[in-house]
Design a protein around this nucleic acid. Structure first.
Lengths: 230, 230
DNA sequence: TAGTGGTCTAGACCACAGC
DNA sequence: CTGTGGTCTAGACCACTAG
C-alpha cells in the first residue's frame, strides 16, 4: 500500500462511514500534506483520484467537498458468452444457422455503422451444456475485414474471430427487452411470448464500422450486472 | 488543453488511427519526455491515464504497449425515469398503487441488502404523457431512513425522496428481461406475454442497506445505452 | 544486471473563484 | 486581493522483471 493509496483509503473511509457527509469540506491539500508529512503532489494524487471517481468535488479557492451520490452511470460488465457459459461449468459450442451476403439497409439497426459496402451476415446459436443459450445475428463489414469472406463460421463464433482479425477501438451497446421473432424463438426453443434480453453492439475502428451484433438471451438465462462503488 | 492532455490525445490518436496496433510498444517515457520537452511526470500522467482507461498496458522493464481491445466493461447510463420522460417532451407523474410494511424475506431479491429490521414497501407507476411508462417496487430500510414512515409517496416518487434524505455510497444494478406478473401487467396495461426490461438496484451506505428498487419497463418503452470509447 | 515503470519530493508559476 | 487547486519541473530512490 503506497502512501497515496493510504490517503485515498483514509478519505474514502471517512466518507463511507458517514463521518464526512455530502457537502462536507475535506481538509485542504496543505493540511493533509502536514498531517501525512508528505509532498503536495502525493495528497493531490489521492484527492484527484477520488474526484475522478465522483466521490469528491473540487472547486478552486473554495476547497474540496464530499459529492452527493448521483445515479448517473455505472460500470457494466459486458459478457463474453463463451466465458460466461464455461464459468458456470457448462460446455460451450457455436452452431451456425445461416451465412450470406447483405446489402446495407439504410433503415436497419446496423445503419449507424455507416457502412455502404457489402456486409457478411452470420446467424447462429451459442449452445451451453447442450441447450440453446443465446441467438446471435452478426453483420461484418467486408471492407474492413475482407478475410471474413473466406471463413465459414461453422464452429467458431464470429465474435472471437473478429477480435483476433479486426480489432476495434470504439463500441456502443444497447440493452432492451423483446419478444423473439419466430425463427429466433425456434432456435432458442422458447415460445414467442417468452421475454428475452437483447444486447446489441456496434463497433468501429478509426471511425469505420467493423461489425454489428445482436444477441438474444431467453430471460431466465442471463442477467447483466453493473456496479457503482465510489 | 494542457500539455499532458495534448500528449494523451496524441497517443490516443495513434491508437485510434491504427498506426499503433494492439501489441505495439509505444515510446518509452524518456523518449516522450525528450519529444515533448517536458518532465517525466508529465508524460507519466498522460500514459497512466490511458492505462487506467484500458487503452495501454504497462509492464516494468518491458515498456508500455497498446492493449488489445477487450469487451470487459462499458459505462452504462443509469436512467432517472422522470428526467428521461421529460427529455422526450412528455409530462411525468407518479401514481402510487400500494404502501405497506414488510418483514425481510431471506429468500427474496432484497435479501442481499442485509437488512433484518422492518422495510417500507412502496409500489407505483411512472406515468408519461398519461400512459404507464414503468412500474416500480421499492423497499426502504426504516432503520436507515426512519422518516420515510411519515411519507405517503402519493405524488412524490420514493427514489427522489430517498436521494434527498438518505444518500447512499454504494450501488449494484442488475438488468434482465421478464414477463410481467399479472398485477404489474395490468398496471402497465400490457399483456403478460409482453417482454419487459427489468432494472433492479440495491444501494448501501457505510455497508448498511438503504433501499431496493425493481423497475419494470414495457420492452418498447425503454433501452439502456452503454458506451466504450477508449 | 540493466533499464523500465512506480512513487515521491520540494519546490515553482498560474488561473480562477471567493471574499 | 487572497488562497485554493491545476499543472508542471528536475530531480531522487525503489521494485520489479526481462534478457
Amino acid at each position: 500500500m503506497t502512501l497515496s493509496e493510504q490517503i485515498m483509503a483514509d478519505l474514502a473511509g471517512e466518507i463511507a462511514s458517514g463521518a464526512w457527509p455530502p457537502g462536507h469540506r475535506i481538509p485542504f491539500e496543505h493540511e493533509l500534506m502536514v498531517r501525512y508529512g508528505c509532498a503536495r503532489a502525493t495528497v493531490g494524487k489521492a484527492v484527484n483520484a477520488l474526484a475522478e471517481r465522483g466521490l469528491l468535488e473540487r472547486r478552486r479557492k473554495a476547497g474540496t467537498f464530499v459529492a452527493a451520490p448521483r445515479i448517473a452511470s455505472a460500470v457494466l460488465q459486458i459478457p463474453d458468452i463463451r466465458a460466461e457459459v464455461e464459468a458456470r461449468g457448462l460446455s460451450w459450442r457455436w452452431r451456425r444457422l445461416g451465412l450470406g451476403m447483405r446489402r446495407p439497409d439504410p433503415k436497419g439497426r446496423a445503419a449507424s455503422l455507416g457502412v455502404n459496402g457489402p456486409l457478411l451476415e452470420v446467424r447462429g446459436v451459442h449452445v451451453a451444456g447442450g441447450a440453446p443459450f443465446a441467438h446471435e445475428t452478426r453483420l461484418i463489414n467486408l471492407a474492413e475485414a475482407p478475410t471474413a469472406a473466406d471463413e465459414s463460421f461453422t464452429t467458431e463464433a464470429p465474435g472471437a474471430w473478429l477480435l483476433a482479425h479486426a480489432p476495434w477501438s470504439e463500441a456502443r451497446h444497447e440493452i432492451s427487452a423483446a419478444n423473439p421473432d419466430l425463427d429466433i424463438a425456434e432456435a432458442l426453443r422458447v415460445p414467442t411470448r417468452h421475454a428475452c434480453l437483447v444486447l446489441e453492439r456496434w463497433t468501429w475502428r478509426a471511425g469505420a464500422g467493423i461489425t454489428y451484433a445482436r444477441q438474444v438471451f431467453p430471460g431466465e438465462n442471463f442477467t447483466l450486472a453493473a456496479s457503482f462503488a465510489p
